[in-house]
């Protein structure tokens, strides 16, 4: 039977229905200069936005800059936010994604220098197994085109629904499904070489 599933995704989905104050409500309070509401929004969304930017840019400082700029834009948007419209979560990721794309355009593709010492086939099993897996998966994710990578990050890491990912990417749900399918297929092929035992190959 199904395993427990992606813990991150489960927690995020559950948290959306646990009776906490809605983003719309918090934003209306932010528009009234309530710092406490801003703190809740920051704690709710800053982590995912920063993680996403880090995945795309592979540069901690740049990712933090993108996250900061995204939330700065939110402060300007708060007063004109329309409750019931686009969800804040998808709005934030859309802004962050555009900022990441701008940065990548301005600066040619960053080298994958944040992933240390990619293990080669000779010494892969001399280092900790868990770290090997992390690095292999990171490298495989790095190889994905940006849209496929974004789809995987939003759905599998951040717990977005198909509709939410579609809005964040400004595409249809069917297109999201296609991106996910291509991304997962590419990951499976890539990882089957490095981690065949873990993929049941």
């Amino acid at each position: 039977m199904p395993r427990d599933g992606n813990l991150f995704g489960q927690l995020r989905r559950r948290s959306e229905t646990d009776g906490r104050e809605s983003d719309d409500s918090l934003l209306s309070r932010v528009a009234r200069d309530e710092s406490a509401a801003w703190a809740v929004l920051v704690d709710r969304h800053l982590g995912p936005v920063t993680r996403y930017a880090n995945w795309i840019l592979r540069d901690n400082a740049a990712a933090e800059d993108v996250a900061q700029e995204t939330f700065f834009r939110l402060t300007k948007k708060a007063s004109e936010w329309e409750p019931g419209g686009a969800s804040l979560k998808t709005w934030l990721f859309r802004v962050a994604r555009n900022l990441c794309i701008d940065r990548k355009r301005a600066k040619t593709a960053l080298p994958i220098d944040t992933i240390e010492d990619t293990p080669d086939s000779d010494n892969a099993f001399e280092v900790d197994r868990r770290i090997d897996i992390e690095k292999a998966v990171q490298l495989s994710l790095e190889k994905l085109p940006e849209r496929q990578k974004t789809a995987i990050i939003l759905v599998h890491f951040e717990g977005f629904s198909g509709n939410e990912a579609a809005k964040a990417l400004d595409i249809s749900v069917e297109a999201v499904e296609s991106l996910l399918a291509r991304a997962r297929k590419a990951l499976r092929i890539d990882l089957s070489g490095a981690l065949p035992d873990l993929l049941g190959e």
């Binding site: 395993r3 992606n6 813990l7 991150f8 932010v30 200069d33 309530e34 710092s35 801003w38 703190a39 929004l41 920051v42 704690d43 800053l46 982590g47 920063t50 993680r51 880090n54 901690n60 933090e64 996250a67 900061q68 939330f71 700065f72 402060t75 868990r130 897996i133 992390e134 292999a136 998966v137 990171q138 994710l141 995987i152 599998h156 890491f157 990951l187 990882l191 981690l195 873990l198 993929l199």
Partner: peptide, 24 residues
């Protein structure tokens, strides 16, 4: 399971402080 093995970077306090300062 392999995707879940990817570490999620921690959010830095300094970033949170900077973003908090942006708001009211």
């Amino acid at each position: 399971a392999l995707l879940e093995a990817v570490p999620q970077p921690e959010l830095s306090d300094s970033l949170r402080n900077r973003v908090m300062a942006l708001g009211p």
